[in-house]
Simulated scan of single mutants.
Amino acid sequence: MATSNPIGLEPVEDNLERVRTGIDYSSKIQPLVSASKRENGKEELKWLQGVTVDDKTGDIYIADCFNDCVKVFDSTAKYMFKFGDRRGEVNMSNPKSFVIYKSRILITHNHGILNYTLDGEFLSRIGKYGKGKLEFKYPEGIAINESNDDIYICDYFNKRVQILSQDFQFKSLLGLFKCPRDVKFSQEYIYVLDTSNPCIHLFNHNHILQKSVISLGQGNQVITPRSFFIDNSNNILIADCSSNSISIFNPEFQSIYNIPVLGQPTAVTVDNHDRVIVMCDRTVNCPLIF
C-alpha cells in the first residue's frame, strides 16, 4: 500500500484489524434494477450526482443536478416525487450530496446547504457565497458525526471541510486540502476524499491526521474518484469515474473487488438489504441497483 503525508504530520502505525468482507461484492455483476431515464412523462434524469437511502423506508433520494431538483424513488426504483425549485427562497441549483439527519435531509448545492423534510418541504437555507465562516464555494460531500451530531461539509473550492453544530452554527475547520470532495465516518476515523492526487486522508476524531492513502492498493489505482461510501464492515466503496467501476477496498485499503458499471459513476451507497446503489452520469443517466 502506498501512503504519503501531504499535510506534514507523521502517520501513526495502522492498528485496524483485518475484518471479513461482509457483503459478497463478487455477486454484484449485473444490476438488478435500473430506473428509467424518463419516469411517467417527467423530465429526463440528467447529470446525476449524490444518492442516499432512508434506512426506515428504503426510499432512494437522487440529486438531479441538470434539473436542479431532488427526485425520490422507492426501494424498487419506482419514481415517487421530486422537490426543489431554482426560484424564490429555495433557489436550489446544482444539488450535489445528501445526508439524512433526524427526519430531515440536508443537501449541498451552489454555495450553501438546503434543509428539507423527507417529504420535500423546504425548511431553511444555510450559508452563502464566500470564504469566511458559513460561506461556501461549491460545497460537495456532507456527513454527520454521530458521536456529537456535528455536520461536516466539503467546501470544495475553498479547499477545506467546514464543521457546523447541529443547529447550523460554525464550529471549526478541518484541512487544508486541495480538492476535498467527500467525507465519511467510521467509529475510529474521519475519512476525507481529496481528488487532486487522488487521496483519502484518515483523521481521528480529535482531527489529528493518522495517514493518507494515495494509490489505494498496489495495481488497483483509482483514477478519478467522485465520491465514496463506507459499509458496515468498514470496507470502502469508491465511485471511479474514469474506470467506469465501483472500486472496493477493505479497511486496510487492499482491493476486494471492482463492480463494472455502464457510464461514469458519480455516487454510491449501500442500503439495509446490502444492495449497492450507483448513480451514473453521461451515458446511462439513471440509478443502478446491484
Results as ranks from 00 to 15, higher is better:
Ser93His: 15
Gly22Ile: 01
Val276Thr: 10
Phe66Met: 11
Ile126Met: 03
Val70Met: 11
Ser243Gln: 14
Gly41Leu: 01
Ser103Cys: 09
Asp85Trp: 05
Asp281Thr: 07
Ser242Val: 08
Val53Leu: 08
Glu43Arg: 14
Asn235Asp: 03
Ile277Asp: 02
His109Cys: 13
Val53Gly: 04
Phe170Asn: 03
Phe83Asp: 02
Ser34Asp: 11
Ser26Gly: 06
Asn272Gly: 12
Gln264Pro: 05
Ala267Glu: 04
Asp24Tyr: 01
Lys133Gln: 15
Leu193Ala: 05
Phe228Tyr: 00
Phe290Met: 04
Cys199Met: 13
Phe229His: 12
Ser93Asn: 15
Ser215Ile: 13
Ser36His: 12
Lys128Pro: 00
Gly263Cys: 00
Thr117Met: 03
Glu89Cys: 06
Trp47Arg: 14
Cys241Tyr: 15
Ile7Pro: 01
Asn110Asp: 14
Leu114His: 12
Ser97Gln: 13
Ser215Leu: 12
Phe122Cys: 03
Thr195Glu: 12
Tyr79Asp: 07
Glu17Thr: 11
Met1Leu: 13
His111Asn: 15
Asp54Glu: 10
Glu188Pro: 00
Ile144Asp: 03
Ile62His: 05
Val276Arg: 03
Phe290Gln: 04
Ile208Thr: 15
Leu288Asn: 08
Val261Glu: 05
Pro265Lys: 04
Gly112Pro: 09
Leu114Ile: 02
Cys280Pro: 00
Asn158Glu: 04
Ser147Pro: 03
Val268Ser: 01
Glu39Asn: 15
Asn204Trp: 00
Phe66His: 14
Asn15Phe: 08
Phe98Cys: 01
Thr224Tyr: 13
Ile208Gly: 11
Val278Arg: 06
Val70Gln: 09
Pro225Arg: 02
Val183Trp: 01
Lys71Ala: 06
His201Asp: 02
Leu202Asp: 00
Pro95Leu: 06
Asp274Cys: 07
Glu44Ser: 12
Ile62Gly: 02
Ser165Gly: 08
Glu13Ser: 10
Asn258Cys: 09
Arg125Asn: 13
Met1Gly: 11
Gln187His: 12
Arg125Cys: 10
Tyr61Val: 00
Lys171Pro: 03
Lys56Val: 10
Gln264Leu: 07
Leu193Asp: 04
Ser233Cys: 09
Arg226Asn: 14
Arg226His: 13
Met1Pro: 07
Phe253Pro: 02
Glu146Lys: 15
Ile105Met: 10
Gln49Ala: 10
Leu32Phe: 11
Ser97Asp: 14
Asp240Pro: 05
Glu17Ile: 10
His109Trp: 10
Gln169Pro: 02
Ile236Asn: 02
Ser97Lys: 13
Ile62Cys: 05
Asp14Ala: 03
Asn115Thr: 10
Asp85Ile: 04
Pro265Leu: 04
Asn258Asp: 12
His109Asp: 12
Arg87Lys: 15
Lys159Arg: 14
Met92Pro: 07
Ile238Phe: 01
Tyr152Val: 00
Thr283Asn: 13
Ser147Trp: 08
Glu89His: 07
Val268Arg: 02
Tyr138Arg: 14
Ile113Ala: 02
Thr52Glu: 11
Phe249Ser: 00
Arg275Met: 11
Asp167Trp: 05
Lys96Asn: 13
Ala267Thr: 02
Pro287Phe: 00
Ile100Cys: 07
His201Ser: 06
Ser93Ile: 14
Phe253Met: 09
